[in-house]
Each structure stands twice: as C-alpha cells, then as structure tokens.
Amino acid sequence: MADVEAIAAAALGCPLIADLTGGRFGEVATYGPGRRILGVRIVDEVVELHVVAKWGAPLPEVAEVVRAAVAPHAAGLPVSVFVDDIQLPDELRPQSEPPPALPEAPVVI
C-alpha cells in the first residue's frame, strides 16, 4: 500500500520543489481521517503528485528527481508528476507589502 503521507514528505524534501498544490480548485488531495494531504492522490493505481517547482531547473529533471525520491514509498505504483505552477524568480515575485496609497485627487468644485 502506497504511503501517501510519506510521499508528500519525500516530495517536499526535494530542494527543487517549492510546495505541493491542490490544483486550481484545491481538490487534489488525499482525504484522511481528520485531515487531508494536499497535492497527492492515487487514481486508478497511479500516484498523482501535483507540485509547484522552483525557478531555474529543467522541469523534466525536477520531475525525475521527485519521482525517484517518492518511489520507495509508492509501493511500485507509477508516479505521474504534474507541474501545476512555478515560483517566479525573486526579482519578479510580487511584494507582500501593500503599494503606497494613491495621492488624494484634488476636489474641483
């Protein structure tokens, strides 16, 4: 039996993976008792892994590395890696602080 929790932990342990993601609607997850493991599910005997990659490395290589990292926990099932998003390089990432307030428009009466 594939260990979903160990798969998620192994994937997050890869340096080229920024995060796991639940897909556009957050529905990709394994629903366990009392919690859910986002980004991993087993469909038709295939492990689906949805990841957010870090900027820089070629994505097929990233996928290969992740696949190798989670393979010991997948109980022989094939692992499909979905790169759902990519983290932008630092200089293009939106700043978290709010932009300065717009100057007040002069009131013309």
Binding site: V46, V47, A53, L59, P60, A63, R67, A71, P78, V79, S80, V81, F82, V83, D84, D85, I86
Partner: peptide, 10 residues
Amino acid sequence: QGKTSIADSV
C-alpha cells in the same frame, strides 16, 4: 514510471 505534465500556466 509515470508521466510528467506541465501546466499551461507554467
């Protein structure tokens, strides 16, 4: 060992 999909947004 499984396929790799890359989303359009990426």
